[in-house]
Amino acid sequence: MAHTPNTTPELAPFTFAYKVVHGAPIYLDVYPPSLPPDSRVANAANRNGNHDPAIVPALLYFHGGGLTVGNRKSWFPQWLQKRVTAAGYVFMSADYRLMPPATGHDIIDDIKDIFRFISGELNSKLSAAAADGTLARFGVDPNAIAVAGSSAGGQATYWSAMHVSPKPKAIVLLYAMGGDYLTPQYLTKKTVPFFRGREILDPADYSEYMYPFADSLEVISDSPLAYNPSSSPMPGFPANPRMLLSRLYLQLGVLVDYLTGEHGLSDILRKALASDKTDLAHSTGSDYYDAINDRLKQLIPERHHLLFPQFATISDWPPAYLVHGTLDTAVLVHESRYMHRRLEDVGVNVTLSVQEGKEHSFDYEPDAETVHGKELFDSVDEFLKEHLEKARTD
Rank of each mutant, 00 (worst) to 15 (best):
N6E: 09
A12H: 07
P13D: 01
Y18R: 11
V20Q: 15
V21W: 02
G23H: 10
P25L: 02
P32I: 02
R47M: 09
G49Y: 07
D52F: 10
D52V: 13
L60Y: 00
Y61R: 08
G64K: 09
N71A: 10
R72A: 03
R83H: 06
V84H: 02
A87P: 03
Y89C: 10
F91M: 07
A94Y: 00
P100C: 12
D109V: 03
I114A: 04
I114Q: 10
F117G: 07
I118G: 09
E121Q: 07
S124Q: 14
G133A: 09
T134L: 15
T134H: 14
F138Y: 15
P142Q: 12
A146R: 02
V147H: 08
A148L: 01
S151W: 05
W159C: 04
V164L: 10
S165L: 11
A170T: 12
G178Q: 14
Y186R: 10
Y186F: 15
L187P: 14
T191P: 05
L201M: 07
L201R: 00
D202A: 13
Y206W: 00
E208N: 04
M210E: 10
P212K: 08
A214R: 15
L217N: 08
S230C: 00
A239C: 05
R242Q: 08
R247D: 06
L255H: 10
V256K: 09
V256C: 13
E262S: 08
D267M: 00
R270W: 07
K271F: 04
A272D: 12
A274V: 05
K277T: 02
Y288A: 13
Y289R: 09
Y289A: 07
D290C: 01
L296F: 00
I300Q: 08
R303P: 05
L306T: 12
P309W: 03
T313V: 04
P318W: 02
L322W: 01
G325A: 09
T326S: 15
V331K: 11
L332A: 05
V333F: 05
E335N: 13
M339R: 01
M339L: 12
N349A: 13
V350Y: 01
E356F: 12
K358L: 13
E359V: 01
H360Y: 10
D363W: 03
D363S: 00
T370H: 08
H372R: 06
G373R: 08
V380I: 15
D381A: 11
F383M: 11
L384R: 06
K385Y: 03
E389G: 10
